[in-house]
Design a protein around this nucleic acid. Structure first.
Lengths: 328, 328
DNA sequence: TTGAAAGCGCTAACAC
DNA sequence: GTGTTAGCGCTTTCAA
């Protein structure tokens, strides 16, 4: 493997000049630049990351420790962020983290051995004060995605509230007046936002929220099924159920199926997330698509010093079979 | 941040001794070892990866470039491999790769800048000769998971064939004699194995395979739905459909639902992979669980020079609602 | 079993 | 604008 020294000799310039060209520094005459590039090509030179890291006190690494809320979410974030990193000569190092007593040590090891130039955190890690403070202590630039706003680091927040309201409006359009809601896992920062959106939607139609129509959830199929069962057992059951994520909506769908209710004829069901399973279900679930890859890309962009267009980060309502019929 | 030099001074030994202790080299007197460790503790010393890489010509990095067949699969491999890496002081760097003209350059950049000590490849990348040969050219130790056997690198193969046969046997036990099969994507190395298992299962019961009952598939919901439609349109349709992955089985489930067929009463459906959606479907899909995390861990173990117990890598039949009824 | 010296391949700081 | 020098923090080699 050729080194910078070889390139410098081949081009008849100093090592520093080669370094300058390679790093795109200013004040380099085009002529010298060309000579260096020619030598780089000729020798098929590849800079050694380790040497750059050591000498330059930069790692060219963004770390993404994650705890697995959903495989689809993780990979989308990963892909968005990794691609952005790659375009800037950076690398993304992702590392699974358990929510046990090894959590902090693992993150600490990630920071102290890799010395990443930045870090991305998603729920639930991004909302755990112990984790965020740990990162803050090492002064690693941090971007938190979809978390609360009151901790160290930049936040990328998405407007769950507005889109939740839009979903309720969609159900209203379909003629639904009694809309059950399955709450998000209470420990997620987005819980408030999605619930508020539901209330907004009702308010917009001049409908009073009804406590019995609002059921707790924990983001898993089981809790969705339980909530749906409770809703359908009501003396006056809802004609539509809006679950605040897809897994819970699929739980509701399962209950409907097992009770012989036809979806969407007897009951409309809507979810949130556009999970792969929501597409594969029968009927396919009406849901909300989050621009997850974009979120990952945006996080990386921020860390790499780029500008971000917050307007680009928009939810999208995906109307599918599970809410395709008019109520009544 | 303290350096080895600081630790050496603090302990009153040479830098080399500290290095020896840290790397667990032999020929170190316990007494010296203890003194060094005490200094490490006292100073909260963390070795700098970049410096170790540069001086030691080792990167402590395993690379995992992947193309996204399924998010669940990717994250499981990732988690298994990353955890093993971590336990050995290594890091896993994963990188999404598109199947376009950037594919080879991206992989090359991954190799030449990171200089990984090993690489893991999963389908479809692990079966693409261009990719594997590229890796071979750089002499990066490679482990391929679930691929063919005729390329550079170690292979971790799993016995799809035996478990496919077991699935057919299960359906036979339920009284099914006409079992439709939806073939895997033909470009995957596992295609032959899963199909053979189906044939084995029939042969075991003394049943001749019937060409009309064997439909092509491409691993996506659409192709599964098409195959199921074709099977159900047969003059003598099957009473069970075994799709060679879950997405296609869910396509079959969708067709059954939309035709008003009850699953499993009118039609049994089985899949392969234990995807999240297979658990969330109604009825839940009978399927095959692959020990995906173990595969990732095994791949890392091999690269890190560990021994592997091939017997540990076993499929598991998951009997769920979609095949719960006796045929007839 | 331990230590001293040299150097991994690059960039920072400074001089010119 | 370009070159020179001196390291970055560790491991290797070789000597003791």
């Amino acid at each position: 493997m050729p080194t910078i020294r070889d390139v410098a000799q081949h081009a008849g310039v100093s090592m520093k000049s080669v370094s300058r060209v390679l790093n795109g520094e200013a004040h380099v005459r085009p002529q010298l630049r060309d000579r260096v590039m020619a030598a780089v090509e000729a020798l098929d030179f590849r800079p050694n990351l380790a040497a750059r890291q050591l000498a330059g006190h930069k790692s060219f690494i963004i770390a993404y420790p994650f705890n697995n809320p959903s495989a689809a979410y993780i990979t989308e974030i990963l892909m968005g962020a990794a691609r952005t990193c790659r375009d800037h000569g950076y690398h993304l190092v992702s590392e699974p983290v358990e929510l046990d007593d090894q959590m902090l040590p693992v993150i600490e090891r990630l920071i102290t051995t890799l010395r990443p130039d930045g870090m991305i955190l998603t729920p639930p890690l991004c909302d755990m004060p112990a984790v965020v403070e740990h990162v803050a202590r090492f002064k690693v630039p941090l971007v938190r995605i979809a978390g609360g706003l009151d901790l160290y680091g930049e936040s990328i927040v998405i407007d769950d509230r507005t889109i939740s309201r839009a979903m309720v409006a969609h159900l209203m359009e379909k003629g639904h007046r009694r809309i059950g809601f399955v709450l998000p896992h209470p420990e997620h920062a987005l819980a408030q936002r999605r619930f508020r959106g539901y209330l907004d939607g009702l308010a917009e139609a001049g409908i009073e929220p009804e406590p019995a129509l609002i059921q707790p959830g924990r983001f898993d199929l089981e809790s969705g099924a339980q909530a749906a069962a409770a809703l359908l057992d009501l003396p006056l059951p809802p004609t539509a159920i809006f679950a605040s994520n897809d897994d819970m909506a699929l739980g509701a769908l399962r209950v409907a199926h097992s009770r012989g209710l036809s979806v969407p004829d007897d009951l409309a069901i809507a979810g949130f997330d556009d999970s792969p399973a929501s597409r594969l279900a029968y009927p396919a679930l009406t849901t909300v698509r989050q621009p997850t890859q974009l979120l990952g890309a945006a996080a990386a962009t921020i860390l790499l010093g780029g500008a971000l267009d917050p307007a680009a980060i928009k939810h999208e309502l995906l109307i599918r079979g599970s809410t395709a019929k008019l109520a009544g």
